[in-house]
Design a protein around this nucleic acid. Structure first.
Length: 419
RNA sequence: GGAGAGUUGGCAGAGCGGUAAUGCAGCGGAUUGCUAAUCCGUCAUGCCUUAACAGGCAUGCAAGAGUUCAAAUCUCUUACUCUCCGCCA
């Protein structure tokens, strides 16, 4: 949430930020609304001052036993016109707040400007693309060949986009989750197992609502949302709380299933594990002192990268440009792992600094000396499993058609190779 | 699902129709030569005036509605927390 006062005082900056995001939001009508809001406040507060003055007078008169029917008559009129103004003010406030909830975060000054995702910047590349001396296969073939994932039965049970992991496939999936959780725990992230259904206010905090309601699974009867990421429950751990400065940074790691309707992406990546309605993800969330949130973002990125390094998978890091930045983020890095079959990079993590955007929505503050201020929130996938699963199958396949298990996972899965 | 209790500032805690006591912590200042004490101020948000310092007004007692000249206080609705009962993995 960008506060109206900030918009009012930095209108050019906000306009520029929206333009850089390729977003068209009518700021002038927001300012007009703000203006009329302040005018109403002026009028109604003058009346309320009047009312307070006469109420006190009436109280004194009553004590003395004097008659005050004239004043009371007058105040009845004042009160009813206060009521009208208050109603008007409430309507204007609601309209204004509704509009403000649709304004995205302001990109950090270091974010590259761009018109589309083509302007994202590759800032790092780690490892090497594998060279196969044999005809290598894609993950769908490999998964079906070895009975790791049953897409057909998943579709029978739920629909497309709900893979059924079986036997060694199920074990590999669980090994990945357990391995990543352990790694991050060792780096002082506190382990969380969050609720997977959350209320509306939690989704407003992180910014998936109100703008992206179409992407969420919604349970009408109970007014609950299925989480699209563990970011939602974990960020809301401290909703409406005040955190002591000496407790910062607060670092959490959580596994969750993630549910996404993927509205508007029909026909894209419909086969295999690349785009799913339900998938598993390990998420890192940090609550940090605003003065060093960008250093914390860099270290968060390293925490996520470490997983791919330990799995010895080639990846690159993209710095998202203003046009590709997500709604709530001020800055974001994507980590993309190499898929030999598709000959392209697959996004397995987004690491973002939200600055105070989410903490304002969720009223998450910290005590800075004598002042209460909004904290900065960060999060990053560490990592999402489906594309990681893809990368392991494709990068670790062997000439005899088997799949080697990466060394760090062997103790988790109990075998060294899928034959 | 049923019954009861509760929700007041950073925290603790009073007030139960006349407009938020008090304590603790924090911050600023004064004073005293001693790791501290004492005193004063400040310590939520918004709006207005001001270049700024500062000042004025309003709002704020879980959320919303109602009664009233006046609501933390009375009435209704909702949310959440706790306790007990029921059902259940």
């Amino acid at each position: 949430m960008i506060p109206i006062k900030f918009i009012r005082e930095n209108i050019e900056l906000v306009k520029e930020s929206l333009a850089n995001r390729n977003m068209d939001i009518d700021l002038d009508s927001i300012l007009t609304l703000d203006n009329s809001r302040r005018n109403i406040i002026k009028s109604v507060e003058a009346l309320k001052a009047d009312r307070n003055y006469y109420s006190r007078k009436i109280a004194k008169q009553k004590q003395k036993g004097e008659d005050s029917t004239a004043q009371i008559k007058k105040m009845q009129k004042v009160s009813s016109s206060i009521k009208e103004y208050d109603l008007e003010l409430k309507e204007v406030n609601e309209k204004l707040n509704q509009l403000l909830l649709f304004i995205p975060n302001i990109p950090h000054s270091s974010v590259p400007r761009g018109k589309s995702e083509d302007d994202n910047v590759v800032i790092k590349s780690w490892g090497e693309k594998p060279n196969f001396s044999f005809q290598h296969k894609d993950h769908i073939y490999l998964a079906e060949q070895h009975g790791l994932v049953d897409f057909k039965r998943g579709a029978k049970i739920s629909g497309s986009g709900y893979p059924l992991y079986i036997d060694k496939g199920a074990k590999l999936e669980r090994a990945l989750i357990n391995y990543m959780m352990d790694q991050h725990s060792e780096n002082d992230f506190t382990e969380i197992f969050p609720p997977f259904l959350v209320n509306e206010s939690s989704v407003l905090t992180t910014g998936q609502l109100p703008k992206f309601k179409e992407d969420m699974y919604y349970i009408d009867k109970d007014d609950m949302f299925c989480i699209s990421t563990a970011e939602i429950p974990v960020t809301n751990i401290h909703k409406n709380e005040i955190i002591n400065r000496d407790e910062l940074p607060k670092k959490y790691v959580a596994y969750s299933a993630c549910f996404r309707r993927e509205a508007g992406s029909y026909g894209k990546d419909t086969k295999g594990l690349l785009r799913l309605h339900q998938f598993n993800k390990v998420e890192l969330v940090k609550f940090v002192d605003p003065s060093n949130s960008y250093e914390e973002l860099e270290s968060l990125l390293l925490n996520a990268e470490r997983i791919l390094q330990n799995l010895n998978l080639h990846y690159r890091i993209i710095e998202l440009c203003t046009a590709d930045l997500s709604f709530s983020a001020a800055k974001c890095y994507d980590i993309e792992v190499w898929s030999p079959a598709d000959q392209k990079y697959l996004e397995v993590s987004s690491c973002s600094n939200f600055e105070s955007f989410q903490s304002r929505r969720g009223n998450i503050r910290y005590k800075n000396n004598d002042k209460l201020e909004h904290i900065h929130t960060l999060n990053g996938s560490g990592l999402a499993t489906p594309r990681l699963f893809v990368a392991i199958l494709e990068n670790y396949q062997t000439e005899d058609g088997g799949i080697d298990i990466p060394e760090v996972l062997q103790e988790y899965i109990g075998i060294k190779k899928i034959c």
